[in-house]
């Protein structure tokens, strides 16, 4: 079955959505992610949507669900890389993605997760880049 890869980096999980997801694939991602958070005790989830050409109400709902479920499992979710045209369309559609934290790119998202987790933990694969 078709699946979206989930990478583990330290205490974080990274998902890069690079395909035009049909609804069932998005549901599978939601299930897979919640399972992985629980298996790995991840503290943060980064979802990179920079390759997504649209976010409609269904994808918006899935992103919101992932954020809520991960919070219940003691992990923070940050959605990163939304294209400007997607953001404009989302607002006109009437979705504000309430309760979802966002960052402009993966690096900033990672920094946001680290600071909200008190820095000591989290993926420290680029330890020399931090101060």
């Amino acid at each position: 079955m078709e699946r979206i890869a989930i990478l583990q980096i330290g205490h974080f999980l990274l998902v890069t959505i690079q395909v035009d997801m049909h609804d069932r694939l998005a549901m599978t991602l939601q299930d897979d992610l919640t399972n992985r958070i629980s298996q790995t005790s991840a503290r943060g989830v980064l979802i990179d949507i920079s390759a997504l050409e649209i976010v409609d109400s269904f994808i918006g709902r899935i992103l919101g669900n992932i954020a809520k479920m991960s919070r219940i499992l003691d992990a923070e979710t940050v959605v990163v890389g939304m294209q400007p045209a997607v953001a404009i369309t989302l607002v006109e559609l009437g979705l504000s993605l309430k309760g979802i934290r966002t960052s402009l790119n993966v690096e900033k998202g990672m920094a946001l997760l680290r600071s909200s987790l008190g820095d000591s933990e989290g993926g420290s694969m680029d330890g020399d880049a931090e101060k």
Binding site: E53, I54, D56, F58, Q83, T89, E92
Partner: peptide, 12 residues
Amino acid sequence: INQTKIVTGASE
């Protein structure tokens, strides 16, 4: 932007 709007509407 207009591509994104019409594609999003079509998807809905």
